[in-house]
Design a protein around this nucleic acid. Sequence first.
DNA 1: TCCATATAGATGCAAGTGCATCGATATGGA
DNA 2: TCCATATCGATGCACTTGCATCTATATGGA
Lengths: 151, 151
Amino acid sequence: MTKRSPSPEAVAAWARLMRVSRQLVEKTEDALKAGGLPPLAWYDVLHELAEAGEGGLRPFELIDRVLLAQYGVSRLLARLEAEGLVEKLPVSDDGRGQTVRITPGGRDMRRRIWAVYGASIAELMGDRLSAEELKTLATLLARLRHPPTGN
Amino acid sequence: MTKRSPSPEAVAAWARLMRVSRQLVEKTEDALKAGGLPPLAWYDVLHELAEAGEGGLRPFELIDRVLLAQYGVSRLLARLEAEGLVEKLPVSDDGRGQTVRITPGGRDMRRRIWAVYGASIAELMGDRLSAEELKTLATLLARLRHPPTGN
DNA sequence: TCCATATAGATGCAAGTGCATCGATATGGA
DNA sequence: TCCATATCGATGCACTTGCATCTATATGGA
């Protein structure tokens, strides 16, 4: 099988995507640090758990949602639990598993992170592109998803 | 100062951008690993040094180009040197500094990485969006750069 | 029932990263 | 000239991540 070459347009778009996404993450992480808040990954997990409600989520369900490896989820949950932001409950019908639920403290932390995170998004994206442009951008990016029919 | 809230469009575009960029990086890093090749960051540095030619670059010049912290560049260069992919030369007019130059082995490695990297870009971007769409995407992303007048 | 295999989640170890700081040289002003 | 300050690059230490593997439980077929 022969290796293919990307078009100049594909390379240019790739380069922009790599560079800009890293810049935006860095800016946002810096803002969180400046506010004495934990990294973005904590927000992602707390957000998913808040959405999930009282039923909580199984760790393996978090893996694809937050795009973290299995051991990454395991260790992140251990840290969140140590901070009292989530609690782990045994699950009755599967002795191997557990259910992870957000605590009131976790909801509060999620809110505090969002105050900074949301402001960062507003500044870095909302101020720079119109609503129409943002929709176009999201649509184009959606076409790059993996798997193509997924999220 | 009051914290602002991002528009739904900004949040949606942000979420897509974060998720897709991470998926693309992950896919590409996986392809490199599968080929027994080093991470993307190595390519970035080798690419910049190849572009710079025989004159090479000072480490501090690499910092902004590859979006790495000072200590990140320092240690990455040490690894590249240990692999014989770059060489460090003293610079006559500044006793603190050095010039880093790519070696033939480094150029070869760059080529080998590109065979996989380029194919990955072609598959992940070129196959999914038209040239027009790629241009639109790159243009929109460029508006998110930091600093706004920069790269 | 028993056992081979699969799945959920945790973890030891090596490698990478962030932070703070260091040593060395440069620079500019008194 | 001298010294305070700035810049270049490296590094010790703590923490995080990746990889491989482990333990424990579940499942399905003979």
